[in-house]
Every structure is written in C-alpha cells, then in structure tokens.
C-alpha cells in the first residue's frame, strides 16, 4: 500500500515477560515454565528461581538485540514483570519474521497492536 494512502498509524508493542506471565489462551506456555516463589520456600527454591531468571533474562536480552539490530526506532521501558519495546515505524509482520528467523518462538513474547488515526482523519 502506498504510504500516502494509509489512514492509520500502527504501533507494535512487544512484551517480554520474566515474571507473572499473563494467562495465555493455551493455558500453558510450551517453551517457558515460569518459576515463582510461594509461601514455603527454601534455599533450593531460590536457586531454581535464580537459574530461571538468569536464563529468561538472557533470552530477553537476545531478543532485544535482534530487534535493535533490525530497526533503530524503539521506545524501551522496564515494567513490573516485563520489558516492553514499542515502535511506530516497523510493521508487526517484520517484527515476527525477524524474531522467528533467529529461532525465537511466538510463545516467548506477547505482541499487541495499537492503531491511531493519521492526522486529520475524521
């Protein structure tokens, strides 16, 4: 589509959760088994949690690097339980393709889209 004929702006929001994964449609994330801390915990639970976080955060860092290499314009924020990357200048299909081509599965991140009308549109 000719960019002059587009009537909306697409904002792609990618969320990389490391804690408190939101409920997913398929009920369990096939690739990630989240380790959380409950009430009765011992030193071994902390080590398991540490290992999980280390692996997961490394994986998130790798995904971020891939995206930053593919495109410059990102707004990145650290939020409670996840890291969020947003862009208005890189289409969602390209984002998914870049991550897939580097071996990252859709289960490892959550994508949201936010459209806004272009200037002046009714």
């Amino acid at each position: 589509m000719n960019i002059n004929n587009e009537t909306c702006v697409q904002r792609v929001i990618i969320q990389f959760y490391h804690q408190n994964f939101p409920k997913l449609k398929n009920k369990e994330n096939k690739l990630i088994t989240e380790v959380t801390l409950g009430k009765d915990i011992g030193p071994e639970d902390i080590r398991l949690w540490k290992n999980y976080l280390t692996e997961r955060l490394e994986r998130i860092a790798q995904m971020m690097e891939v995206l930053l290499e593919a495109h410059e314009d990102w707004a990145i924020t650290g939020r409670k339980g996840f890291v969020q990357m947003e862009t208005q200048s890189f289409e969602v299909n390209k984002v998914i393709n870049v991550l897939s081509s580097h071996g990252f599965h859709k289960d490892e991140y959550i994508i949201k889209l936010e459209y806004t009308r272009k200037w002046g549109v009714l």
Binding site: M1, N5, E6, T7, C8, Q10, E91, V92, I111, K112, L113, E114, Y115, T116, R117, V121, L122
Partner: peptide, 23 residues
C-alpha cells in the same frame, strides 16, 4: 473510525485492513 481503530487493535488486524475500514 474510532471503532475501526479500537477493534482493529483489539483483534490485531492488518494495517491495510484498518486503513481500508477507515477509508
């Protein structure tokens, strides 16, 4: 238009589809 962009965002429509709906 407000509904097209809101529903388009909620259901993850393609950008071209949202543009067509707005037009």
């Amino acid at each position: 238009v407000s509904a097209s962009i809101a529903i388009g965002s909620a259901v993850k429509s393609e950008k071209q589809h949202v543009s067509v709906a707005i037009s």
